[in-house]
């Protein structure tokens, strides 16, 4: 046994054991199969799969991505095959992966979320649900579910009634008070929280005088935003928090964990460096070893 093996990297996210605290963020590795050969998912704590909707969704028209300084804007619009096609065609191909699979669900209305949680309730390969409440809610005039504490409470309570897996609620950073929203989710029964989703942003073409992409900003540019919100939410709630936003290496991940996160998710950094998930895991181990620590929990929340 070498030094590395003695370091305990496992974390408990609610009842679910992850072999390490590094999770692939929803929407960035699809349903895993596209990244086979580039990412060894068995080395990753968990994967949050591409956001699912009840019906198939064609996603947004026009240009969907635009690189910006230290980040990128996306406006994919949740293009996905729908939950049934996912269960029939995609899940069978990945359920044997030696990692924890998290289904990320998004809806147009409360009924959609509840119905999806119901359809996933007995799916053994899905160990956790991540409720994406930061997408536009058509039935409520385009306001996202995740904006007001009252709406968050309603939707989390409704989903909790039917879902059998632990429920992770993914919070939007584009809100008045992230802590009020986090507490509303906790009070309604959320088992853990993940934050942040992308930050509202815009890229324009000056010469053509038009919008290039109006969408969500991700990548290193948003790390200070994510870090602050995670730091504050960790103080405000008792349930575990999964931190994300701009993580590109072990140092970034450790900063989130030191601010109180139990685990982290990495998204955009995968595009330029598919090995970033594994490298973050080994980088965290290396850091702990250097510091003479033997358990990831010893770093958690050390920044007060």
């Amino acid at each position: 046994m070498n030094d590395m093996d003695k370091i305990e990297m496992g974390v408990h996210l609610c009842d679910v054991h992850l072999k390490n605290p590094v999770i692939a963020a929803s929407g960035t590795v699809g349903f895993c199969d596209e990244y086979q050969g580039l990412i060894d998912f068995s080395k990753v704590g968990a994967v949050s799969l591409k956001g699912l909707t009840l019906q198939e969704r064609a996603g947004n028209e026009g240009v969907r991505i635009c690189e910006t300084a230290s980040g990128m804007l996306n406006s994919i619009g949740l293009q996905n095959p729908g939950i049934d096609a996912f269960l029939m065609q995609y899940l069978p191909k990945i359920q044997a992966l030696d990692t924890v699979l998290i289904a990320n669900i998004a809806g147009n209305c409360m009924g959609d979320y509840v119905e999806m949680a119901r359809r996933l309730a007995n799916v053994k390969a899905i160990k956790m649900l991540e409720l994406n409440i930061s997408c536009p809610n058509v039935k409520q005039g385009g306001v996202a579910f995740g904006v007001y504490p009252k709406d968050i409470g309603r939707i989390v309570r409704a989903v909790k009634k039917v879902c059998k897996q632990p429920l992770m609620v993914k919070l939007s950073p584009n809100v008045a008070s992230i802590c009020d929203n986090a507490k509303a989710a906790q009070d309604a029964g959320a088992d853990c929280l993940s934050l942040v989703n992308t930050v509202h942003g815009l890229a324009v073409d000056l010469d053509k005088a038009c919008v290039i992409v109006k969408g969500g900003l991700s990548g290193p540019a948003i790390k200070p935003i994510g870090l602050r919100q995670v730091y504050e939410v960790c103080k405000a709630v008792d349930i575990p928090v999964v931190g994300m936003g701009g993580i590109k290496n072990a140092k970034d991940a450790l900063e989130y964990i030191a601010c109180g996160a139990t685990a982290v998710q990495i998204g955009t950094a995968i595009f330029s460096q598919p090995s970033v998930l594994q490298e973050t895991v080994s980088g965290i181990q290396e850091y702990l070893r250097k510091k003479g620590l033997n358990n990831i929990s010893q770093i958690k929340g050390v920044i007060k």
Partner: peptide, 15 residues
């Protein structure tokens, strides 16, 4: 040619 992020078919950015 369209703008690409992942290049492997995962992100749905290049459709």
């Amino acid at each position: 040619e369209t703008k690409m992020a992942c290049g492997v078919g995962a992100c749905m950015g290049c459709v």
